[in-house]
Amino acid sequence: MITDWHFYALAIPAVILLGLAKGGFAGMGALSLPLLTFAVDPVRAAAITLPLLIAQDVVGVWAFRRTVEWRLLGWMVPGAVLGIWLGYAFAASVSPAMVMAAVGAISMLFGAYRLWAARHATPRSAARWPEWVGSLFGVASGFTSQIAHAGQPPFQLWVLPRNLPRELLVGTTAVFFALINWIKVPAYFALGQFTAANLLTSAALLPLALVSTVAGVWLVRRVPAERFFTAIYMLMIAVGAGLLWEALP
């Protein structure tokens, strides 16, 4: 089990952000893994947070289980399986510094995309594409989710143009990422990351993960969070740039 207080100084806010994201504040959790990467290598950080994500998924899926667009998931999930395999192959074949650089780049792109999306209407043309194109977005979402637990942008680029009601969007998002988090489990076993130390660290953070998820479910129906989102995404770009700065030399 990790006992370094520097790790927990980053892990506690990271887990709270994961909980808020799983509770319905979609996108906030993408900052969590980049934060932890300043304390441990990115593959280990992802392995520690994966059990927390799976536990948090139970709360999110239960809360929104009656509002799911299954047809969209039917097209996206098969592509996500391929994307997860590609992400595993990438992480298994390159150095930790390259994985860190990938996490940094994904974080910057994620933050920039979300800031852009907040100021521009979602393109309606995507809603007119053939349904099978959703599998390609699934591949991109699976890959970025495997590398950095940041599969939201490709998912949203495909789903948001459909203008789903808020509850249906949140429920579909919860179920999609619950499924792909379970699909990622064999990949992290293959990478040798489910060690006793990592699992004990996950267990120590689990109570906070569950409490923050319940809080997110409660808050998402009551709190407008636009300004908070803007700060999160700007910080995500800065953190991603910091990871790139550390990794590229």
Rank of each mutant, 00 (worst) to 15 (best):
I2N: 07
I2G: 02
T3Q: 14
W5C: 11
Y8E: 01
L10Q: 08
P13N: 05
V15N: 01
I16D: 06
L17E: 02
L17K: 01
L18K: 07
G19T: 02
A26S: 09
G27F: 01
G27L: 03
G27Q: 00
A30E: 05
A30C: 06
L31A: 15
L31D: 10
S32L: 07
P34L: 11
L36D: 04
T37G: 11
T37W: 05
F38R: 12
A39R: 14
A39Y: 13
V40L: 15
V43M: 12
L50Y: 03
L50F: 04
P51Q: 14
A55P: 12
D57L: 04
A63I: 08
F64V: 12
R66W: 07
W70L: 14
R71C: 14
R71M: 14
M76D: 01
M76C: 05
V77K: 15
G79T: 12
G79Q: 12
A80D: 02
V81S: 10
G83W: 06
A91G: 09
S95W: 11
S95C: 13
A97V: 13
V99G: 06
A102F: 03
A102H: 04
G104E: 06
G104M: 06
G104I: 05
A105L: 11
M108K: 09
M108I: 15
L109A: 15
A112L: 15
Y113S: 07
R114W: 00
W116K: 00
A118H: 07
R124N: 11
R124Y: 03
W129M: 15
W129Y: 15
P130D: 13
W132A: 11
S135Q: 05
L136P: 09
G138L: 11
A140H: 08
G142F: 05
G142H: 00
S145R: 04
Q146R: 11
G151V: 02
P153V: 00
P153N: 00
P154L: 07
F155W: 15
L157R: 12
L157G: 10
W158D: 15
P161H: 01
R162P: 10
R166K: 14
L168C: 13
G171V: 10
G171L: 10
T173L: 10
A174E: 02
V175T: 09
V175D: 03
F176L: 01
W182G: 12
W182Y: 15
V185H: 03
P186I: 00
L191H: 06
T195W: 11
A196Q: 08
A197C: 04
N198A: 12
L200G: 00
L200T: 03
S202P: 07
S202N: 06
L205W: 06
L205V: 07
L206W: 08
L206Y: 09
L206P: 09
S212G: 06
T213S: 09
T213P: 08
T213K: 09
V214K: 14
A215V: 05
V217E: 01
V217M: 00
V223G: 02
P224M: 06
P224H: 08
P224C: 08
P224Q: 09
E226K: 00
I232H: 04
M234P: 03
M234L: 13
A238C: 08
V239S: 07
A241E: 06
P249H: 10
